[in-house]
Design a protein around this nucleic acid. Structure first.
Lengths: 126, 126
DNA sequence: CAGATTGTTCTAGTTGACTAGGACAATAGA
DNA sequence: TCTATTGTCCTAGTCAACTAGAACAATCTG
């Protein structure tokens, strides 16, 4: 079961955070087709956000064709996200973790790493 | 000179985007102490956001002690951000770019890569 | 069938982000 | 000194995000 972590006051909307966390879990294989998302009321109790906010997040995912809501039973993952097979992810995870260790020992903080990642992914100098 | 790229409709506030871009540029060494940020009016003309929005972003950076605003001359970078020396960044950039190439050839899209990065940096399973 | 569970809808209201446009004040440069 | 540049402030207003609380309707479970 996926646990949501909504950071209020971080500046960006709670419903976007929820949606992103679902998409991310799907990409990482934590959520696969057929899996059930936490109940709207569960999320309300866990994260403190309003039911309408959760609903907005779920509805957006449904519009994207990623999940399917079934009254009485819950919201279920419909499609798969992530273009790589979960097996292929593991070796990449290992090598990247090694790189992170190297970066950290060079003195980089997580924010530095994020900045570097964004720089490289966006095509270097932009 | 740093160019700002404000993505309206992305969901999170323009003033946060501006602030983050400045911080990121500082971490990557593109902005160093003494450098001048774009004029408030420049940003207005370039990105289309309102002067008050830019001001809010700049004021937040000033409160954080990162920049210094001088009426009549501009806003200048005051401190340095990023815990690593810029020279140390290059080799890390190279090895990371290699890893990205590997990940992409394994079929990963940028979003998959971001998800993996966040997973590893947040400590794997959470 | 009966009760619990779940998604869904509705209204009303608050808060914060952002816009619009104008004006002021301090500084730099000629 | 004069002028352009720059940061700063102000008022008023719009819009989206989010809250609060209640109710409804479809489905599952026993």
């Amino acid at each position: 079961m996926v646990e949501f972590h909504v950071d209020r006051g971080s500046g960006f909307p709670a419903y976007l955070q929820l949606g992103q966390q679902v998409r991310e879990a799907m990409r990482l294989g934590w959520l696969q087709p057929g899996d059930r998302l936490p109940t709207v009321r569960d999320v309300v109790a866990t994260s403190g956000v309003n039911a309408n906010t959760v609903l907005k997040a779920y509805r957006e995912l449904e519009l994207a064709g990623l999940v399917e809501a079934r009254v009485g039973s819950g919201t279920f993952v419909k499609a798969s996200l992530g273009s790589a097979a979960p097996e292929d992810l593991d070796p990449l995870r290992v090598t990247f973790a090694a790189w992170v260790a190297e970066a950290r020992s060079a003195g980089l903080e997580d924010e530095d790493i994020y900045a570097l990642v964004r720089e490289v992914l966006s095509g270097g100098a932009q």
